[in-house]
């Protein structure tokens, strides 16, 4: 059957084997063979070394990737002021429209423009990471390693500028202070090629 049209690579076809013989027609051999496998798992997990992927979450933490996109944080300059210059790039690129910025002017000429309001509605956020890529100042990152935010009312998900500055913002429910993952500058900024130190 020629539906593929002109083929550029060799088409190799393998017909799957669906023939089943006499031993499969009897029920018992397969059931006993299956029992052997399940009992092996049973014995290993009950008495031997467990082979489970489940973790007991709040007590045990999973190792997360250095690239994991967790809760946002606003990075700060050496003098402690936030790096953000309120250029609206992240607000512009956000597919979920969850960032709200209002800019203001600063007396200090080394800063000039800064966000008076920088809110992220973490309930709307889809954690796509585009804001990090769009930021021209390396002012926003998602490397806090906070994977779970659980609060009892909606208002607490509106992260304001000063909350976002604190990367270790405590999780009310799990009492778990996330440790930021050891992200290098290059890891946090996927587009860079590691020349930022200069």
């Amino acid at each position: 059957m020629d539906i593929g049209g002109a083929l550029k690579a060799e088409l190799k076809v393998k017909v799957v084997d669906r023939t089943r013989g006499f031993t499969e027609a009897l029920y018992l051999p397969a059931i006993l063979a299956g029992l052997r496998i399940t009992v092996r798992h049973f014995i290993r997990n009950m008495f031997g070394k467990r082979d489970v992927v489940t973790i007991s979450y709040p007590e045990e933490q999973r190792r997360i990737s250095p690239r994991y996109r967790g809760r946002h944080r606003l990075t700060v300059r050496e003098d402690g002021f936030i790096k953000c210059v309120a250029c609206y790039m992240c607000e512009e690129i956000c597919p979920a429209n969850c960032i709200h910025i209002e800019s203001g002017e600063m007396e200090d000429k080394s800063v000039e423009k800064y966000p008076v309001v920088f809110d992220i509605d973490e309930l709307r956020c889809v954690f796509c990471g585009l804001c990090v890529e769009a930021c021209p100042k390396d002012a926003i990152r998602m490397d806090t390693g906070i994977i779970a935010m659980a609060y009892t009312d909606r208002d607490r998900f509106d992260f304001t500028r000063d909350l976002l500055r604190d990367p270790y913002h405590e999780n009310e429910k799990t009492k778990f202070r996330s440790v930021p993952s050891p992200a290098t500058e290059a890891e946090a900024l996927p587009h860079s090629e590691g020349k930022l130190a200069e």
């Binding site: 049973f42 997990n45 009950m46 082979d51 489940t54």
Partner: peptide, 13 residues
């Protein structure tokens, strides 16, 4: 519990 042992899980705890 036994089923979770067969299925490589932790089971209710």
């Amino acid at each position: 519990k036994w089923m979770s042992a067969v299925q490589d899980r932790l089971g209710p705890n």
